[in-house]
């Protein structure tokens, strides 16, 4: 369960805010437990890629928590400073825990997921086209 929830929370966190707003135009009634709040996360790296951690720099995030009428609580921490993005992500997180999960998955998560896959694939394909194919120069006769 946790891993599935982690997957949709991550998908929602990096979704383009405008696209999420298109997919979730109306917010059903809910109580804000934590109104959308902009803040930062300190991103860490590792010394030499695998050693001890060091502080690389911060990134902006927005967090939100809300409760639906049926009692389901949704959480979100999303990239950037879009409060609507955080509210919608928390809402979808809550909806995914309820009766309508299957419909929300089809209506929201699946399009986001396939669009993300397509974006990643296009970038990887352009990079792949720049892979160097080495060939050995033919040596002349002795």
């Amino acid at each position: 369960m946790t891993t599935e929830r982690q997957a949709w929370m991550s998908l929602l966190a990096t979704a383009p805010p405008a696209r999420l707003a298109e997919l979730v135009p109306d917010l059903p009634p809910h109580d804000m437990l934590r109104a959308p709040e902009i803040g930062a996360v300190m991103v860490r790296g590792r010394q030499g890629a695998t050693g001890g951690p060091f502080n690389l720099g911060e990134m902006t995030v927005t967090r939100c928590a809300l409760r639906l009428a049926d009692g389901a609580v949704g959480h979100a921490v999303v990239q950037g400073r879009d409060k609507g993005h955080a509210a919608r992500a928390a809402l979808v997180d809550a909806l995914m825990q309820g009766q309508g999960a299957a419909e929300v998955r089809v209506a929201v998560l699946e399009p986001l997921s396939s669009e993300r896959a397509a974006r990643r694939r296009a970038r990887a394909a352009k990079a792949a086209a720049t892979k160097v194919e080495f060939f050995t120069m033919v040596r002349g006769d002795d």
């Binding site: 803040g39 930062a40 996360v41 300190m42 991103v43 860490r44 995030v61 921490v77």
Partner: peptide
Amino acid sequence: TLPRFAASSPI
């Protein structure tokens, strides 16, 4: 001006 919510796991 930003509150810091957390530190990430090392990337």
